[in-house]
Amino acid sequence: MELIIGSSNMAAYLEETEMIDFHHPVIREKIEELRRIGKNKHDCAQLAFQFVRDDIQHSFDKESTKITIRASETLEQTEGICFAKSHLLAALLRGMGIPTGFCYQRVTRRGTPESGYALHGLNAVYFHELYTWFRIDPRGNKPGVQSEFSISPERLAYPIRTELGEEDYPYVYSKPLESVISSMKYSTDCKELFYNRPEAID
């Protein structure tokens, strides 16, 4: 897929925001740990991806009621849904000077059109050495779901089934969608959030 970059200003993809709070002490501590282990920027990015994918639990998978939104609280609570995990990965990468954006897919809630649809969040990353953006999905692996840090080909969590009404959006946003943040803020718990997630990009 040819990605459509939302802003021509690369600085927008390095920005710190309320949700992508990479100067928070817990985020800085994790960044320094990754830098001590990684040999170079690419290695650090892959380690960050693997950490968020594997060590931050997906709240739906663990049937949690807790909602995390900001990168720092997602790290502190060691859990979050796909949106929160993409916020954390963006904070870790941006904090290391790696431009990172937000991407979305429209997927079925439970595998069938009858179950309804919801947005799924992931990231896009830019490496100056490669002159290219590529997508990575830190959702978290489980039986039937397998994502990897792979530039080409992509190895994302969900293969999109257009015949079921699913959609792969090509846009790379510099900030999380407001509709996504609102659904997280105004849901009383994670079980309600499962149904309150936006169904599509307007």
Results as ranks from 00 to 15, higher is better:
Arg155Ile: 15
Leu89Ala: 06
Lys175Arg: 15
Gly6Ser: 14
Cys190Asn: 15
Thr112Val: 08
Gln50Ile: 12
Phe134Pro: 01
Pro176Arg: 06
Glu29Met: 14
Glu166Thr: 05
Thr74Met: 10
Leu119Lys: 04
Ala200Met: 14
His42Val: 15
Phe22Cys: 04
Glu129Asp: 11
Ser179Gln: 12
Ser7Phe: 01
Cys190Thr: 11
Cys190Ser: 13
Ile181Val: 15
Met184Arg: 10
Glu114Gly: 00
Tyr13Val: 05
Glu178Val: 14
Glu167His: 13
Ser115Cys: 07
Asp61Val: 15
Gly97Phe: 03
Tyr126Cys: 04
Ser179Tyr: 08
Pro176Val: 09
Leu164Asp: 00
Tyr13Lys: 01
Thr78Tyr: 12
Gly97Cys: 06
Gly38Asn: 07
Tyr126Asp: 05
Gly144Arg: 09
Glu2Ile: 13
Lys66Ser: 12
Thr17His: 04
Ile201Arg: 10
Gly116Phe: 00
Leu3Asp: 01
Leu88Phe: 08
Ile5Gln: 04
Glu166Asp: 06
Arg94Glu: 07
Glu167Val: 14
Asn123Phe: 04
Arg70Met: 15
Phe102Cys: 05
Thr188Leu: 14
Tyr169His: 02
Leu156Arg: 01
Ile20Lys: 04
Ser147Tyr: 06
Gln57Ile: 11
Pro153Arg: 05
Tyr158Met: 07
Ala90Phe: 07
Tyr13Arg: 01
Gly116Ser: 02
Pro159Val: 08
Val125Cys: 02
Val172Ser: 08
Tyr13Asn: 00
Leu34Gly: 02
Gly97Arg: 03
Asp21His: 03
Gly116Met: 01
Glu2Asn: 13
Pro25Gln: 10
Glu154Lys: 09
Tyr186Ile: 00
Pro99Met: 08
Ala124Ile: 02
Met19His: 14
Tyr158Cys: 03
Val125Asp: 01
Cys103Met: 11
